[in-house]
């Protein structure tokens, strides 16, 4: 968007790139990450079930143990986190995208920088969540 001057094109059309590009992307990511998290949770459960079944445990035992080990609090806690991660991933992606310089190499540099910043921010935010959840007793 930046390298091929689309952002400049938006500006000279009188359209605000933040409203036009960034808000839509952040909203989409915030909507999608909790759904993706639910999907990942389900796949994790199914994967666990397959392993347990292959080891000879009956499905009902696995199910009971899961109920005992996982509270609704942890599921909701995970979803709340995923909202925050959605904002972070979309936000940092857009920020690095807008900061892109000129030329094809700049696109690669921005991508790398977005991934690195994203990982670091997620790790830090996850740590903060852990501390908060610990004190809240989630």
């Amino acid at each position: 968007m930046k390298v091929r001057e689309e952002i400049d094109a938006l500006k000279t059309m009188g359209l605000d790139p933040v409203r036009f590009l960034i808000v839509t992307r952040v909203v989409a990511a915030v909507g999608m990450t909790p759904l993706l998290t639910i999907f990942a949770d389900l796949v994790g459960l199914i994967g666990g079930a397959v392993v347990m079944l292959s080891l000879g445990f009956p499905l009902i035992t696995y199910f009971h143990q899961i109920q005992y080990a996982v509270s609704y609090g942890s599921i909701v806690g995970g979803l709340v986190k995923s909202f925050a991660f959605g904002i972070l991933v979309a936000g940092i992606g857009c920020l690095r995208g807008l900061q892109t310089g000129t030329g094809a190499t700049a696109v690669g540099q921005s991508t790398t920088s977005a991934v690195v910043s994203g990982i670091i921010l997620i790790a830090i935010t996850d740590g903060i969540f852990s501390v908060v959840y610990y004190y809240l007793g989630v």
Partner: peptide, 20 residues
């Protein structure tokens, strides 16, 4: 005021800058 001025001209960018 700026919007009003922007409406008076159009720009074709070097690469076209059509939204992909």
């Amino acid at each position: 005021t700026r919007l009003k001025i922007l409406r008076k001209f159009g720009v074709m960018y070097q690469s076209g800058a059509l939204f992909g």
